[in-house]
C-alpha cells in the first residue's frame, strides 16, 4: 500500500510537471500578450510595453521564467527587484499580473467557494441519482423507471448555463421565492451559506444526478442479471437482502469511480457553473485570467484542477481496494 502510494505520488508529480510545462509553453505560443492587454484597446508605445514586461518579469527567456515559477513553488521567491520586491514564501505561485497580489491568496479566496459548490452538489447528485437509478432498475418498466429514464435524458440534454440562468430568472428574480446565489463563509453565517449555495447545489446536483441515475440504473441492471444475484435469490434471501447486500454492494465500485472522477473533475467544470451563478470561485477566476492573459493565475488554476483530478484518481484507486477484495494496490 505504501509503495503504491509513493509510486502514484511520483507519477502524479510528473503529470503535474508535464501539465505545467505545457501550460506555460501554450501560454507563450498561443495568443497571449499580457502587456498589450494592460495597455487597453490602444496601440501601446514600445516603451510602455517594455516597462510593463519588465515589471512582470516577462522579458527573460521562457525557460528562465518557468524555472523561476517552479522554484518559487518549492522554495519561495522574491518578485520584483530591489526595494520594490515582494516576498512570496513557498509555495509561491507568483503574483497576479493585474493586481500584483500573491496568487496563493487569490486561490485561497476562491477555493472555499468552488469546494462548497462541488461537495454540496456532489452529495445531492449522488443521493438523488443513485437512489433513483437503483429504484428504477429494481422496478424496471414501472412508472418510476419511466420517470427516471425521462429525467436522465432531460438532465443530460440540459446544460447548467441554460437551466441555471432559467431558474435564477424565474425563482429568484420573478417569483422571488429562492435566495439568490451567493457565497458567504459557513463559519460566518452558516444559514446564509446554505441558503446562498442552495440554488447552485440543487441545479448542479439535479443535473449531475441525471448522469448518476442513468449510470446507476444501467450498472444495477447489469448486476441484477449477474449469476451471483441469482445465487442469492436461490438461497432464499429476501428481495431486500438480494438488492442491497448483493446487487448494490457490487455496483458500488463503479459508482464510487464515477463519483470520484466527477468530483475531481468538478473544478474543471466550475468555470461554467461559477460563471452561470456568478460565484467568485476558482472557475470564474480562471475564465477571467485566461481573458486577461494573467499567466500566474492561469498556471495556478490549471495546476490546481489537474492536481484534483490526479488526487481523486488515487483516491478512487484506493477506494477500489477497500470495496473490491480482488483489487490489490501494487
Amino acid at each position: 500500500m505504501l509503495r503504491y502510494l509513493i509510486k502514484r505520488s511520483l507519477i502524479a508529480v510528473i503529470t503535474l510537471l508535464m501539465i505545467s510545462i505545457t501550460t506555460f509553453w501554450l501560454f507563450f505560443a498561443g495568443s497571449a500578450n499580457p502587456a498589450a492587454q494592460m495597455c487597453g484597446a490602444k496601440a501601446c508605445d514600445a516603451a510602455k510595453i517594455e516597462r510593463i514586461n519588465k515589471s512582470l518579469g516577462l522579458k527573460d527567456p521562457i525557460h528562465e521564467q518557468y524555472g523561476r515559477f517552479m522554484s518559487g513553488i518549492f522554495t519561495g521567491r522574491e518578485i520584483g527587484e530591489g526595494a520594490d520586491a515582494i516576498k512570496c514564501p513557498a509555495p509561491c505561485l507568483g503574483v497576479s499580473f493585474r493586481t500584483s497580489e500573491p496568487v496563493l491568496d487569490i486561490i485561497e479566496r476562491g477555493l472555499p467557494v468552488s469546494a462548497s459548490i462541488a461537495v454540496g452538489s456532489a452529495v445531492i447528485s449522488v443521493l438523488l441519482g443513485v437512489s433513483l437509478g437503483i429504484a428504477s432498475a429494481l422496478k424496471r418498466g414501472g412508472w418510476l423507471d419511466k420517470f427516471s429514464i425521462g429525467f436522465a435524458l432531460t438532465g443530460a440534454s440540459l446544460q447548467i448555463f441554460f437551466l441555471g440562468l432559467l431558474l435564477q430568472m424565474v425563482l429568484v428574480y420573478q417569483l422571488k421565492i429562492w435566495d439568490r446565489p451567493r457565497y458567504v463563509p459557513p463559519s460566518e453565517d452558516f444559514l446564509g451559506w446554505l441558503s446562498g449555495m442552495s440554488l447552485p447545489w440543487v441545479t448542479l446536483g439535479v443535473l449531475s444526478a441525471a448522469t448518476y441515475a442513468r449510470f446507476a440504473r444501467a450498472e444495477m441492471l447489469e448486476i441484477l442479471s449477474e449469476d451471483f444475484v441469482r445465487t442469492a435469490r436461490a438461497k432464499g434471501l429476501t428481495p431486500r437482502a438480494v438488492n442491497i447486500k448483493h446487487a448494490l454492494r457490487a455496483s458500488l465500485s463503479s459508482i464510487v469511480t464515477i463519483f470520484g472522477l466527477q468530483l475531481g473533475g468538478l473544478l474543471g467544470g466550475a468555470a461554467i457553473t461559477e460563471t452561470t451563478f456568478d460565484m467568485p470561485g476558482i472557475g470564474k477566476l480562471a475564465v477571467k485570467a485566461v481573458g486577461d492573459d494573467n499567466l500566474p493565475i492561469v498556471m495556478a488554476t490549471v495546476l490546481l484542477a489537474a492536481f484534483f483530478v490526479v488526487l481523486f484518481n488515487v483516491i478512487v484507486d484506493a477506494m477500489y481496494a477497500v470495496i473490491d477484495p480482488r483489487v490489490k494496490l501494487s
Binding site: L165, Q168, Y173, R180, R182, T275, D278, M279, P280
Partner: peptide, 17 residues
C-alpha cells in the same frame, strides 16, 4: 459587491428590493 455579473445586476436593480 464585486460578484454580480451584468445579467444579475440588471435583474437585481430592476427588482430593486
Amino acid at each position: 459587491d464585486f460578484s454580480v455579473n451584468r445579467q444579475n445586476q440588471t435583474q437585481r436593480v430592476m427588482a430593486s428590493t
